[in-house]
Amino acid sequence: MVKNTSIRLSHRELFTGFFQAGILGFGGVLPVARYMIVEQRRWMTQVQFNDLFSLCQFLPGANIVNLSFAFGARQRGVTGAAAAVGGLLGAPVAIVLVLGALYARYGGLPVARHGLAGLAAAATGLMLGTALKIATPVCTRVSNAVLAALVFALVMFLHLSLPLTIALMLPVSVFFAWRAA
């Protein structure tokens, strides 16, 4: 994967890139956004993306919206953030407003229900595949794999809330990272 630490994007590139991610992001933007940033346009390496994404995940708000703010601001300051976030949200906000009106009239039709069911199943699969893509390089170290598995189990099987899981597991993780550093 190419190193892209020195890349400097224009407002137009930020807007169109995130526009593409927003308008194609059915059932969650993370898969399309990661594809666009890491695999297609190579704005960040896999490692850089994981670093920024993990930071955004611990801050309040939607992960990818936060990532658009932070990435846009790093590239072009506040106006860069506005370009990235405006690109990400412009089309989806317009679409959801129209869709709300359409759904009220036609949502019960079988064609709409069946297509949406298939779309939702595919979107769920994409979310899982992208999650595994993010987790795989992190879990090559044994201690990381064990920590990630514990976090997974706490949320998935013990139904702990996110803030509680973070409060429990982050200190443990810091301890291991401190010893390894």
């Binding site: 993990s54 979310m127 992190v138 990381n144 997974f152």
Partner: peptide, 15 residues
């Protein structure tokens, strides 16, 4: 330290 916790959280969210 954030990375493994993030990895677990994102896979759990998908799960």
């Amino acid at each position: 330290a954030l990375l493994p916790v993030t990895a677990g959280l994102i896979v759990a969210a998908a799960g």
